[in-house]
């Protein structure tokens, strides 16, 4: 019997879909291509099998997501993960927050930063550099965006280049996308 996870956690739960995922054995060639199923890659998550209902979107979204989160140069990986975590707090995607907070911890060993964010959410008090990144990403994640020119100027004052700020915009924004899939099409559970 599995239970739904409602509280933020850095221990990644299992994602359980609300809709029936595509059955791998019944997937069309287009769906298999979008899921990047190959003879050496047959372990496909329920999340990807769910999104395979719309293979045209999935085929583009996966490389876009990877380019934004893992592309070379620009903003550090940890700071992209912090932007992703901020968006996931605003949108209360417990699963997304767990994945990306745990990656932030893996990159920085800063469990304390994540503990503060999970405890106080949008009121979290962080070091100046992380605070500016977290606050900007969180404000950009509201509908409509609450981010201001002052928020951007703060990032520039702290030494972020335009490419680094662009990477932060993109990493927060792509979680405006990912959160709206993972949090609405399924839920995090513990078995």
């Amino acid at each position: 019997m599995s239970t739904v996870v409602h509280d933020f956690t850095a221990t990644v739960p299992r994602w359980s879909p609300f809709v029936t995922p595509v059955a791998l054995a019944e997937a069309t060639p287009e769906q298999l291509d979008a899921m990047q199923v190959t003879p050496s890659n047959k372990k496909i998550s329920d999340y990807v099998l769910t999104l395979a209902h719309d293979p045209e979107s999935l085929k583009v979204r996966s490389p876009l997501f990877n380019a934004i989160m893992y592309g070379k140069g620009g903003l550090s990986s940890a700071e992209r993960e912090l932007g992703a975590t901020a968006a996931s707090i605003v949108n209360r995607c417990v699963y997304c927050a767990a994945v990306h907070a745990s990656r932030f911890i893996g990159l920085t060993r800063r469990d304390d930063v994540i503990a503060e964010i999970f405890a106080r959410e949008l009121d979290a008090e962080l070091e100046e550099h992380q605070q500016a990144i977290f606050d900007f990403a969180a404000r950009l994640s509201k509908t409509p965006s609450q981010a201001t020119e002052e928020d951007i100027a703060k990032l520039a004052d702290l030494g972020l280049s335009k490419v680094e700020i662009l990477d932060l915009i993109l990493s927060a924004s792509i979680f405006g996308w990912a959160n709206r899939l993972m949090h609405t099409l399924g839920e995090p559970v513990r078995d």
Partner: peptide, 27 residues
């Protein structure tokens, strides 16, 4: 339902990228 989710999610992504770029352009 999945197609609808992708549509909603994409446009919300796109609106944020544009909002962020407008702010970045103010620097």
């Amino acid at each position: 339902i999945v197609r609808l989710a992708e549509l909603i999610a994409f446009v919300n992504y796109q609106a944020r990228v544009i909002a962020g770029l407008r702010l970045l352009g103010s620097l």
